[in-house]
Design a protein around this nucleic acid. Sequence first.
DNA 1: ACAATGTACTGTGTATTGCAAGATACTGTG
DNA 2: CACAGTATCTTGCAATACACAGTACATTGT
Lengths: 104, 104
Amino acid sequence: MNSQLKRGTLELCVLSVLSRRDCYGYELVNEISDCIHITEGTIYPLMKRLKDDGSITSYLVESREGPPRKYYSITDIGRVKLKEQLDEWNSFYASVNKILEKSI
Amino acid sequence: MNSQLKRGTLELCVLSVLSRRDCYGYELVNEISDCIHITEGTIYPLMKRLKDDGSITSYLVESREGPPRKYYSITDIGRVKLKEQLDEWNSFYASVNKILEKSI
DNA sequence: ACAATGTACTGTGTATTGCAAGATACTGTG
DNA sequence: CACAGTATCTTGCAATACACAGTACATTGT
């Protein structure tokens, strides 16, 4: 898979999943990896960016299966961002497909 | 527009347009910019990469409206690459949409 | 004691884009 | 004719986000 394609969409995917329910990082990796390959080394820096810009908050929860889990929760700022990025994504792939269709 | 989204797709778009007809760089910029904003500073390094890996060839044609135009032509290697990237793109945006749909 | 798995984090490298600037050629206007 | 504007190609530097590898620590099972 061309890893360049993922750029910009992983953030959208994370926000989208978090808009359904709170998740911890490792869980997000597994959830999203079903469709698009990612690893922890990709997700944690992304979560840090999202936290820094106020799109998400986090809280720790003890776990019996390993170290404490850091759950992430989407904020109102994050929901606004999600909506914007969703619109961008939809118009973007419509644009790409328009260019591609011309060549058939 | 989130410029990160374009990554990986511009090459696909260029190959796709070239699969229809030969184009010169400036023309490609205008053609593609109808849908996705790009400038010469983006297209020419891309054309160089494509030429280096054998996906396209180029030839000069005199012009009465400015300096000579450098036309680009897709090769068989380029067509194979186009097909691969087309498949990747289709499966990629299906994957993204699958993740996004879960959150509705 | 040790392996396996769950969980979080960091560092280095890399690829592709944005933006800005420059170089050359032609066209039209004052 | 000078000059502005447009067409066309080229190059350089900065920024961004991802890949991969590695570290660290907790728990459970053998």
